[in-house]
Nucleic acid binder design. Structure first.
Lengths: 236, 236
DNA sequence: TAAGACACGTGAGGC
DNA sequence: TGCCTCACGTGTCTT
């Protein structure tokens, strides 16, 4: 039993015809390819024999084509290499995994930059206290990032600092951004001792400081704070 | 004149032999390939005829192979699509250009994050005043980024502020980071009127403020009216 | 042996 | 027509 047959398209006469000095593109091959749908070897679609094209020109074109394709592959692969070099730990990684890694890296960086610019750039219009774990602080584990937006008030910062001191926390980093009368404050803190830092108590301590200042404002009067509030609107 | 010859390896007997039910991997092809170095069609290197392998198994293997390769290509291409989607303005871009774009984007983001973390994170050990153009501020053109590291001193910030006010500058953004006794300060500023901002005069104004405090430290012990001064510090 | 990754040469299709 | 990009099936090397 024969699974396929040579007889149909690849007869001797076929070869003789194709050997007369004029070649179609695919007549270099014998014309048998695997048809993966049918699962058998079939005759390749017959090409027109171009009567006006010489074999030399066809070979020349074919050579140019394959060389151009080679250059294209080289170009792409050099970019792959570059990516491998500037992606940490992605050396000797196959193309698919490398691309996946690059994608996640890209998303990561995008997220991080968005976060940092949100972090420090512009105080929010509304008051906010945020307490979240900070994973990437070298050395100290269990450090915590606190960010809060509020109106600027004299004495508020030192009160905040005292509140954190009372909880026996070390301030690793402090950033303050102001815009108009608004203020944004970012702390990175760890515990003095090796105890775990309790986000909830930090939040409550800071919140109560802010509340204290908010209450004091109610007695001062609304006209001043209105003016201040308006000041925060006029700059991007 | 014939540029190549069919006679050498692809005789009729060759085909008959290869049609006996046992095929080597490449015997499906006729065995003629383009040698791009010599620029002619040459006989492909002859494969061993594996006597123990049936044609069915070979076809099966070939099918599996090509399908696996298809899956691999699909995997890679889907990553290319993902990259196209999350790279701004890289829709409908060919693979090489896309990769180049991704690479420059990646470098850009890396540089930006490094800059911002250098910007704001930790005050330098040595005193420094840096004045540089800020390109990416929306709305306002000709804005300038000023960053300076120095020891924290009471009253220094308000003096800096007065110095900038004297130059008729608007403070768009102010960030302050402290670590121990050191302080880092980043301002983004533009001119009040439409005049071009002069980096040199800004630098000199800030430098003279720092110099003043450096000198005054030699005479005074810096213990005086700490709290009062600190209260007036953070208003842009 | 089998499965995976890669480079290759080729055909198709877009300007 | 020529040049370019892409998908395809294949040969080869590695695990």
């Amino acid at each position: 039993m024969e699974p396929f047959s040579w007889s149909s398209g690849v007869s001797n006469s076929d070869f003789e015809i194709r050997n007369d000095g004029y070649l179609g593109n695919s007549s270099i091959r014998c014309g048998l390819v695997l048809d993966s749908l049918k699962g058998e070897l079939v005759e390749a679609p017959a090409k027109l024999e171009r009567k006006g094209v010489s074999a030399e020109r066809t070979i020349e074109a074919l050579k140019n084509h394959s060389e151009a394709e080679k250059r294209r592959r080289a170009r792409i692969n050099s970019h792959f290499d570059t990516l491998r070099n500037l992606t940490p730990g992605a050396k000797k990684m196959d193309k698919a995994s490398l691309l996946a890694e690059v994608i996640s890296h890209l998303k990561d960086l995008k997220r991080k930059t968005a976060e940092t610019s949100e972090d420090c750039a512009i105080p929010k219009d509304f008051d906010e206290v945020k307490v979240e774990p900070e994973d990437e602080m070298e050395g100290r584990p269990y450090s915590i990032r606190v960010s809060l937006s509020c109106d600027y008030k004299p004495g508020l910062l030192s009160d905040l600092r005292q509140a954190l001191d009372a909880l026996q926390l070390i301030i690793m980093r402090a950033e303050i951004a102001t815009l108009g009368c608004r203020m944004k404050n970012v702390f990175v803190i760890t515990a003095c001792n090796e105890d775990k830092v309790h986000a909830r108590s930090i939040y409550q301590a800071l919140r109560s400081v802010l509340d204290k200042f908010a209450v004091s404002e109610q007695f001062i009067g609304a006209t001043l704070s209105n003016k201040k509030r308006r000041a925060s609107v006029f700059i991007p």
